[in-house]
Design a protein around this nucleic acid. Structure first.
Lengths: 233, 233
DNA sequence: TTTTTAATTGTCAACTGAACACTTAATATT
DNA sequence: AATATTAAGTGTTCAGTTGACAATTAAAAA
């Protein structure tokens, strides 16, 4: 078989930025690096792209292998290619970001794996350029979640409006007016109110909602303008 | 020096999608592939990432080498990694897209290089997954240009409102109401009317405008909502 | 002087967005 | 049993924006 002669081959890795929400703050999933050079330091979940898999497949595989996570939202973010980004050997890294509902996975994570959640605003220094990757992922999350109903990936299937608002407020680091917030979110037609309430957070209780998955798919590509231009209250 | 043993190294390439605007339609810059396997077929401008350059640097270098273009808008789009995307040998491709003012470069392109402009809606079949790359770039251009003042990259430094509107109409394949269009664009504070007119396209002539570069930088990251929700006329 | 053609400009009605506060439901307290 | 407490839920108003719509103006051509 013909090959491209005289060209240098490079290592290609994937790194996964995993965001979660615990009901109060945005969190970031990290592991302690297993390989030498910076072994034991905090790191994103990463691994090398294998000969017969695409980067998407590699990201899925690596995430599953290191955390047990499966079937989660996963999207390519950016490829990082500074020749000196990995001091051991030149390695391209294709970064992915993922959004998951913490409550669904936290037991599994703590028992079988040693990945840990960090408060996003208090994450430790990471190896290589991983802090830069996280910063870019945060920015993209804010950008995209302002236009598309993306943050639902971070909540359980049943959630309340106060939970949803707390999540938005965490992502945008601001407060929203709850009257305007609920009006806007309900007007999307994406939410279906359930008969039961979450009685754990208040005396009165808050009605549960579920996503209307038909409208969700249809409206995902619409521009929704979910975020007020000036923060309120 | 320590290396990562036992990992497969892969070829890494960059491919550049270059959009231009000729005053009437959106155009795509293509070259005829110089390497064997599909030699002579139409292709994006591509080349391999070299050992001591980042992908951004590689994209700049390749674009300049193949077309003479320099100092143009260039942004990473997506990394394409299907193991079978290049039949010769597995190659990752980091795709970039670029926006240029055709009039400024067309002589150079036709004389020194053999890159050619194609009408975007009538582009030929390209090698490998290049058509898929172009499709993704078109989508991203529409997405981003709806929110950010990006399309100015495609116009000369002095341009008229009718030119700008024709450009937007080309990108979004629709017609806008010119009264609403000019009101919206002028309200951004990005445009500065010049004293002279372009007399080449009409008897009355159309005033030239320039970008207010200070406001341009400040507002680039704002969300501008440049596109009407329903097409007019 | 009149005609032609494209550029430029204005109004109005509907909608959207943001500011703002009271009522209600359930439990806890007395 | 009545009252207090706490967070959930809900409406209105005003200002700004958007989109539908057509008449006027500037310059060259006839």
């Amino acid at each position: 078989m013909t090959k491209y002669q005289k060209q240098t081959r490079l290592l290609a890795a994937v790194d996964c930025i995993v965001f979660g929400f615990d009901g109060h703050t945005m969190r970031l999933l990290l592991i302690q690096r297993a390989l030498e050079a910076e072994r034991g330091k905090w790191s994103l979940m990463g691994g090398f792209v294998q000969p017969h898999e695409s980067a998407d497949e590699a990201a899925k595989r690596v995430l599953h292998a290191l955390t047990g996570l499966q079937g989660v939202y996963l999207e390519q973010l950016h490829t990082f290619s500074d020749p000196a980004r990995d001091p051991i050997e030149r390695t391209l890294s294709i970064a992915y970001f993922s959004l998951i509902d913490i409550s669904q996975y936290e037991k599994q994570l703590s028992e079988e794996y040693h990945a840990e959640w960090f408060d996003l605003s208090a994450a430790p220094r990471l190896i290589f350029d991983h802090n830069e990757m996280v910063a870019m992922a945060k920015e993209k999350l804010r950008y995209k979640a302002a236009l598309h109903p993306l943050l639902f990936e971070l909540l359980p299937k049943k959630f309340t409006l106060p939970q949803l608002q707390t999540l938005f407020e965490g992502v945008y680091e601001t407060k929203f007016d709850k009257r305007n917030f609920s009006r806007k979110l309900l007007s999307t037609g994406l939410l279906v109110r359930q008969a039961d309430k979450d009685m754990s957070a208040s005396r009165k209780g808050a009605f549960y909602y579920k996503l209307n998955s038909k409208n969700y798919k249809a409206k995902f590509q619409d521009f929704l303008n979910l975020i007020p231009r000036t923060g309120a209250r």
